[in-house]
Design a protein around this nucleic acid. Structure first.
Length: 731
DNA sequence: AGCACGCCGACT
DNA sequence: GTCGGCGTGCTC
């Protein structure tokens, strides 16, 4: 904010939010001649360096020694951030108990974007000049340039089918000259009328409902549609409506599914590729998208969760695809859930938000049941194909012989599928060869020295790996405890072990493992996904990454090797996660090739999650799960739940966690999970302790946590809270 | 003595 | 988040 307090000649001052973990804006002098307003993006000195910040709303903190004030050193041409954006930053900061500057940092992550796009060097014709000899290559270049525009060297070389040296030669001769090309032209806008699809009656009804939401300002729609029901086509109609209304739109997708396939579908519908925003976009391109979003040249962005913090001025729609996906959660720095913050942003700026999933999260279902969201159901596949027929294999009765992991019934189905030249998918959410290794002689179990989780054998790499902290060591010849040689046994299966069994059963089949940790990285993974997609593999063995994003058109059979995995451990969302994962995985079968089959190997065929999966009845699952939470004394999700995660590996940390548990109000259910349970419960985190607080609806969790935080001595060092509360009731 | 490393506090 | 200051402990 600006303050005209020039009465004493000291000049104006402004509040500036700086990208550091301080509680609020700092005060700076505005040098004469610089024009700033709330939202202006500025560079300011901070300690020994200069940082990028933004002029912010609010009174400067009183009691700052005026002699201490430094001056804004630069005003960026980008921006200013509008009032909606500033309110959003403040809201997210308050909600996540994070310093507002740290949230602002997420908005201003591309420093390159803050300056205008630097001009690029190009070549243009010199009026009247002709080359000494007109070779065929030179002719092609000059023909290509008949439009009279300037070209970049490489662009021209590509278009004319010559090498850059031909162009250099023409420059040398004075036929072409190096010119400075101004910023690239605005990308073509998506055309809502380009290729409107023929929607089924059910899809059309949903599309109409989504479009109608635009007249209500803020409204949240939940599209609950089985895999293959055409959710994407349907919400594209809402994107089209936003574009028609002159608004910008953003589609948030879990990072993993930001695939070429998805972008191509967008192009088929709208005639142009959308702007992309995620961590793999190169800095230059990133900067261009940021500037385009701010200037309004970019109308639609498809991106990962961080796209939510782009500086839109005319945002009129957010779509969150696969809204249940945990990739929308950021666990480090500012811990936020992009799905919830999307709803908040829609609320603050009064525009519609669409959440889409085949397996909505419990909280979104509850919010729909309570009437906060409008739920649209797409119960059938758009192709008219049936959902896969699912069977349980009771491993207690019909399991495989000792030392094998695939039941006879599943093997028979694989054989049949193979004979039909179709693909099978074996799903096991466990990387490596075996999850536990022990010594046959003395019973020693290999445990991680850093975090007490079991070490997982990775036979291809010849190492024992901790999946919790990443530590790894070579597989020893002798037992480190009793010294017996060659006495180590692998217990239980991982994908590598399943592959071994498949290769023994079907030596002639083309078998492929899809697992995130195989050598070759994401590049190889993409290649292999493509191989599967094109039919280059018969049997695919995959971890959870096969559940997401990619479509496998030839997949006809899915075998879940261990359907119970993930149902047992301490995470209160274990059942929900398992249901979502297995529904997504089995939904891969027969999605494009007509009928498909799925087998669930389980020791607990009567578990509500397994039963709901078998009957393809997600209603049964939601009812059972909500009831189970009620019986367990947990408040219904979608109301209030908080996770407090404490970070560093310090004895004091556990003490603080237990102290907050004791201080909790009587009607809040508070659980402290120790390191082992936390390791199981948090797949990706490296948290040593985890405090789970479940509080009833009317309880001010934010205030409680803030009060508690203020009492934690600094000595707790780096203690971090992760708040996982559905913000619905506060909107 | 010289410096690598970790911890802590300040940053307007 | 990033920097500098300062203490500890190790090496030339």
């Amino acid at each position: 904010m600006l303050f005209d307090n020039d009465r004493d000649g000291s000049g104006t001052i402004a509040s500036v939010l700086v990208p550091v973990a301080v509680p609020g804006p700092y005060t700076y002098k505005v040098p004469p001649g610089l024009a700033v307003c709330p939202g202006t993006i500025v560079r300011v000195p901070l300690g020994p360096r200069e940082v990028v910040g933004a002029v912010w709303d609010g009174m400067p903190e009183p009691g700052i020694d005026p002699r201490k004030l430094k001056a804004i050193s630069h005003v960026y041409p980008a921006g200013p951030l509008d009032a909606d954006m500033r309110r959003f930053v403040d809201w997210v900061a308050n909600w996540t108990l994070s310093p507002p500057g740290m949230v602002l940092r997420m908005v201003l992550r591309s420093e390159e974007a803050l300056e205008p796009e630097p001009p690029v060097a190009g070549v243009a014709r010199v009026e009247g000049a002709a080359p000494d000899r007109l070779t065929p290559a030179r002719r092609r270049v000059l023909d290509t340039m008949q439009d009279g525009f300037a070209w970049t060297k490489s662009g021209l070389a590509g278009a004319a089918g010559v090498s850059v040296s031909v162009i250099d030669g023409l420059v040398h001769q004075g036929v072409l000259e190096i010119v400075s090309m101004s910023a690239s032209p605005a990308p073509p806008a998506p055309d809502p009328a380009y290729n409107a699809p023929a929607l089924s009656p059910a899809q059309a009804a949903v599309a109409t409902g989504l479009v109608a939401a635009f007249d209500r300002g803020y409204a949240v729609s939940l599209i609950d549609g089985v895999t293959g029901s055409g959710k994407t086509e349907v919400y594209f109609e809402a994107v089209a409506e936003a574009v028609r209304r002159g608004r910008q739109a953003v589609v948030l997708v879990p990072e993993i599914s930001l695939t070429a396939q998805f972008l191509k579908r967008f192009e088929q519908r709208f005639g142009v590729l959308p702007a992309e925003w995620h961590s793999e976009v190169a800095p230059r391109r990133r900067a261009r998208v940021w500037r385009g979003v701010a200037s309004g040249d970019v109308r639609v962005v498809v991106g990962a969760r961080s796209a939510l913090f782009l500086p839109f001025h005319e945002l009129g729609l957010i779509v969150v695809d696969e809204e249940h996906d945990t990739a929308f959660k950021q666990d480090d720095r500012v811990p936020y859930n992009a799905r919830d913050m999307a709803v908040v942003r829609g609320h603050l700026a009064q525009f519609p938000v669409i959440l889409a999933s085949a397996t909505p999260s419990i909280e979104s279902r509850v919010n729909a049941d309570l009437g906060r969201y409008t739920r649209f159901v797409l119960p059938e596949r758009a192709s008219g194909g049936a959902l896969p027929e699912l069977h349980a294999i009771d491993m207690r009765r019909d399991g495989p012989e000792r030392g094998r992991w695939l039941a006879p019934a599943l093997v028979a189905a694989m054989r049949e599928t193979l004979a039909d030249n179709a693909q099978s998918l074996l799903f096991l959410n466990r990387r490596g060869y075996a999850p536990l290794t022990l010594c046959r002689s003395c019973g020693h179990r290999f445990q991680c020295s850093h975090c007490s989780a079991w070490l997982v054998e990775h036979r291809f790499r010849g190492r024992l790996v901790c999946h919790h902290c990443g530590h790894s060591e070579p597989v020893p010849q002798a037992c480190p405890s009793c010294g017996t040689v060659d006495a180590l046994v692998a217990c239980g299966p991982g994908v590598e072990r399943i592959a071994e069994e498949v290769e023994a059963l079907f030596p002639q089949a083309r078998t492929l493992i899809l697992s995130s940790d195989l050598p070759g990285g994401p590049e190889r993974l993409r290649r292999e996904m493509k191989i599967v997609e094109e039919g280059g593999a018969d049997i695919v063995i995959g971890t959870q990454l096969v559940a997401k994003g990619h479509n496998f058109p030839l997949m006809r059979l899915v075998g879940v090797v261990d359907a119970d995995l993930g149902l047992a451990h301490g995470d209160p969302r274990a059942a929900e996660r398992t249901f979502q994962l297995l529904a997504q995985v089995t939904g891969r079968a027969g999605r494009f090739s007509g009928g498909g089959k799925g087998y669930l190997q389980t020791y607990s065929p009567d578990h509500p999650v397994i039963r709901a999966l078998l009957s393809s009845d997600s209603e049964a699952f939601y009812a059972a799960e909500i009831e189970a939470r009620r019986v367990a004394g947990l408040p219904p999700f979608g109301r209030l739940a908080a996770l407090v995660v404490s970070g560093p590996d310090k004895p004091a940390t556990e003490g603080y966690a237990r102290a907050v548990a004791r201080a909790a109000p009587p009607d809040a259910a508070v659980t402290v999970l120790g390191p082992a349970e936390a390791a199981l419960a948090m797949v990706r985190g490296r948290h040593r302790f985890r405090l789970l607080v479940l509080a009833p609806r009317q309880f001010d969790m934010q205030g409680y946590l803030r009060g508690w935080l203020s009492r934690v001595p600094r000595a707790a060092g780096g203690l971090r809270l992760q708040v996982d509360i559905d913000p619905q009731q506060f909107l």
